[in-house]
Nucleic acid binder design. Structure first.
Lengths: 145, 145
DNA sequence: GCCTCCGTTTACGCGAACGTCAAGATGAGT
DNA sequence: ACTCATCTTGACGTTCGCGTAAACGGAGGC
């Protein structure tokens, strides 16, 4: 028999609440089997959940995630549908690459900020009780553009 | 005289509405000067706005952005404050790097999906009117884990 | 004087993504 | 049979990030 999961198991493993899983079900992102009332999650459900959560972490809305999942999930497609899917996927890729650029830039800026803090702390390590200090040189903002 | 911007100019340049700028001001993210009632945005305001918008694109909440901006912006810090800032910045960097990993994985998966679509379309290009086709091999989901 | 922009404040509204009760079903253990 | 944990289905509440009127204030052109 294929391995299955209770709702509790899955919430603990994935770090979400049961409410979240039910919400995803309401939104059509998951559709676990039932044993009576209880939900029984399959490996496939678990895999979908992982995709959903990663989608969320990269900023997709649940509606967007559902769309992607539907495109993946289709069992019965014509050529036109495949072309449509391909196009959608390609669009997502472009958006994600732009987002990665934003992230890289943010990281670079934060690293600069860390460096400046380190410099400051190094300077004022020997000095005892530096009572108050004005920011030197670099103004309030990192250089824009 | 340093260059300044009206609210309209800034909205057009940045692709946001005036409501958004006022909202950021309400939230303490911007504080443009005034000429009477009218807002006058400086270069610094513009730079901050760019940071805000990029922050939003990478998934920061306005509260988080304000915190980062405040850390940047402080004019008068003690050693303890600098240490605190440094720590916060470092945490953000770690989070962003994790996020970049998620993005890279998402991109990789979407590229696979595009490839599969291309394969399908190549196969069924010569064939006329492929009426209906079942997904072959790869199941509903990409391999989990 | 009046129109037309561009700007302002105040404030209610909204969709997304859940949180948070309330009230009950179901099975396992004693 | 009783308790207990774990599940269920509503259904209203909350936070965030603005959208969207409503109502008004100058400044410039005709």
């Amino acid at each position: 028999m294929a391995k299955t999961y209770s709702i509790r198991q899955l919430t603990k493993e994935m770090g979400v609440t049961s409410r979240t899983l039910r919400h995803y079900e309401d939104e059509g992102l998951l559709s676990p089997e039932r044993q009576g009332l209880a939900r029984i999650y399959s490996q496939r459900d678990r895999a979908r959940l992982q995709l959903i959560l990663r989608g969320r972490r990269v900023g997709f809305s649940l509606a967007e995630i559902r769309e992607i999942l539907d495109l993946y999930n289709a069992e019965d497609h014509g050529v036109a549908q495949f072309q449509h899917s391909r196009k959608k996927f390609a669009e997502r890729i472009v958006a994600l690459e732009a987002q990665r650029k934003d992230i890289d830039e943010s990281i670079a800026e934060l690293k600069l900020a860390v460096e400046r803090a380190d410099n400051f702390l190094a300077e004022h390590h020997a000095a005892q009780n530096p009572p108050r200090v004005k920011m030197t040189g670099y103004s309030v903002m990192p250089a824009a553009e």
